[in-house]
């Protein structure tokens, strides 16, 4: 289908973009790469009166490695981040998880911040941000910026803490901790489809941080003590997320995936190889 009619704006500054969002409120939508939003517009699931394209804002296009995090500006595409030299060493979880985002062709236009802003509960980037305890940086029309922790930012299906006149200018992924191991697994109908369950893990010597996507209404991250047998903790986690039946999978199957994949992920082993098959970015 074709989108319903809208006014198109291409502001040249952050301030101007935020002013437009303030002025048009609920009737305005931001577009960056458009790899989620355009599909929604084409199917007329959303019919905004105003589309504000941030492609014309020059100073959003950067990836910066800082003291304790990797900062990714709102203009950066997923393909660009995947090709960032040293990504696997700086934020290993991203290097593992990002090849699961859509396809080569959608990563070429889809932005990192756009996926965070869209807040699909089964998307990989929100899961990574939540698991690593990253931050979202937002700026409003007065030029004031604020930082929000991932766990506070994601508030439900396609729902975030972003206020009406705010623009996400940057997301911050914490750099790899020495000695920690990072792992990622996903089950989808086909590679590139929405995840039925996606799991991300940060494994330290005495604890495991496990992030779960595709089950609750937002990515959920929990800390588990590192026992010999994590079965009980995983079972409790699986039951705590309010899994529901849908067209792709039953709630029982999702819980089973959390238990089984969680166990595999924490144990480590050859399954990581499967994830590495498509690492060309």
């Amino acid at each position: 289908m074709k989108p319903a009619a809208f006014d198109y704006w291409r502001p040249s500054s952050r301030r101007e973009a935020c002013e437009l969002l303030h002025e048009h409120g609920d009737e305005a939508r931001l577009i960056a790469g458009g790899q989620s939003l355009m599909a929604v517009l084409n199917m007329r699931l959303a019919q905004p009166k105003h589309l504000v394209d941030i492609a014309g804002i020059e100073d959003l296009h950067y990836i910066e490695r800082r003291d304790d995090h990797l900062a990714v500006g709102a203009g950066v595409t997923q393909a660009e981040l995947l090709q960032y030299p040293g990504l696997a060493e700086a934020v290993p979880l991203l290097a593992l998880a990002m090849t699961w985002i859509g396809h080569w062709q959608t990563r070429n236009r889809g932005t990192v911040c756009g996926s965070i802003a869209h807040a699909d509960p089964s998307a990989e980037l929100p899961l990574c941000l939540a698991t690593l305890g990253g931050q979202v940086v937002l700026e409003n029309r007065r030029g004031k910026s604020r930082r929000v922790m991932a766990e506070d930012f994601f508030q439900g299906v396609l729902t975030t803490d972003r206020r009406q006149d705010e623009l996400i200018t940057e997301v911050r992924f914490p750099l790899a901790r020495p000695g920690a191991e990072y792992r990622f697994r996903e089950v989808a109908m086909r590679h590139g489809d929405f995840a039925i369950v996606a799991l991300a893990a940060v494994i330290d010597s005495n604890r495991v941080t496990l992030g779960v996507g595709g089950v609750a209404d937002r990515p959920v991250s929990r800390e588990l003590a590192r026992h010999d047998d994590p079965s009980e903790a995983l079972n409790a986690l699986a039951w705590s997320l309010g899994a529901e039946d849908d067209a792709h999978a039953t709630a029982a199957y999702r819980r089973q995936l959390i238990r089984e994949l969680g166990r595999e992920l924490i144990a480590g082993g050859p399954s990581d190889e499967e994830n590495a098959h498509a690492r060309q970015g």
């Binding site: 458009g34 599909a39 084409n42 236009r109």
Partner: peptide, 24 residues
């Protein structure tokens, strides 16, 4: 498909393969 799934409309935009139905 006009919603970015089938890839039939893929063109190169500044060299990058992209779906032309997901772009204005």
């Amino acid at each position: 498909c006009e919603h970015g799934v089938c890839g039939a409309c893929t063109v190169r935009v500044d060299g990058r393969a992209s779906r032309s139905c997901l772009m204005l």
